[in-house]
Nucleic acid binder design. Structure first.
Lengths: 145, 145
DNA sequence: CTAGTTGCAAAGAGTTTGCATGGCG
DNA sequence: CGCCATGCAAACTCTTTGCAACTAG
């Protein structure tokens, strides 16, 4: 069931999501984008389409501290593999969000599953810390708490 | 600066948070708890105190899918040091909190610092996922979210 | 024509703020 | 007594739902 008719709004939304593949977008960002390029899409429609895609697994929904509202990320068709497995680093100073995926994190996941009987969920898990830039500038300051 | 006076409400809230240390609580749960034991605390006060403690780092705030509203977790005084090195696995089904520290996570930290220019904070970072027990029992069930 | 889609407006849920009252020190 | 804390109500934000109009097939 490819769920429904083709409409202008769906097409536009899909184009945008595909363009933003691998990045998070908030509903606000989507609204702002379409507003800027002069495409008419109601907020309701955006939410409805997004929710449908979350149900089908084409889109992942995240919550991130300090970001108002949900973040959505287009995953695409092959949702079990390649994409969707990456993790996020979030700098607590500048709020920068860094995507990463590497051998080490896979090894950690495997180790934790094998040795600690725990399956880590990349969608929910966010690494908090400090990015290098903020760390460096923090070092220079005399007093920071 | 311990910012402010001692009040009944603050005391009650602190007691509850300390009792729930290591578990997440929602504002609804807090309200329900105090309602049940007959302690009068307004929702506004809860939010205000919680936010203050988030600012001072005594409480961590996070969002979880499927849970309406924010979750808060009491961290306590020793938030930067002492413990520091081990990480937490948190089962999203049964709320079990597993401490762990191993070569793999150290390697990951080093790798991320070296390759991704990011210093992971073990205190803030919590791995979310599913523990084996819950995973197994979940497999058996047909569907009952 | 028919059923899915859209979008406004209104309802809901969670959270914050304004303001007058009350309590700690 | 001064100042912070409290709590009600209202404001606000994000999201969902009801419903009538619309449109793809």
């Amino acid at each position: 069931m490819t769920s429904g008719y083709k409409t202008q709004q769906k097409n536009e939304l899909m184009s945008y999501l595909e363009m933003m593949k691998g990045k998070h977008v908030t509903v606000n960002q989507i609204v702002a984008h379409f507003s800027k390029i002069g495409v008419q899409i109601g907020v309701t429609t955006i939410y409805r389409q997004l929710n449908k895609m979350v149900d089908t697994g084409h889109v992942k929904k995240y919550f991130i501290d300090e970001v108002s509202g949900s973040c959505f990320e287009f995953v695409g068709e092959n949702r079990e593999n390649s994409h969707g497995k990456h993790f996020h680093l979030k700098c607590e100073i500048c709020d920068k969000l860094i995507h990463f995926e590497c051998r080490e994190i896979l090894e950690l996941q495997n180790h934790v599953r094998a040795e600690h009987d725990f399956i880590i969920d990349p969608v929910r898990t966010i690494f908090y810390g400090i990015c290098k830039k903020c760390f460096d500038s923090r070092e220079k300051l005399p007093d920071q708490e």
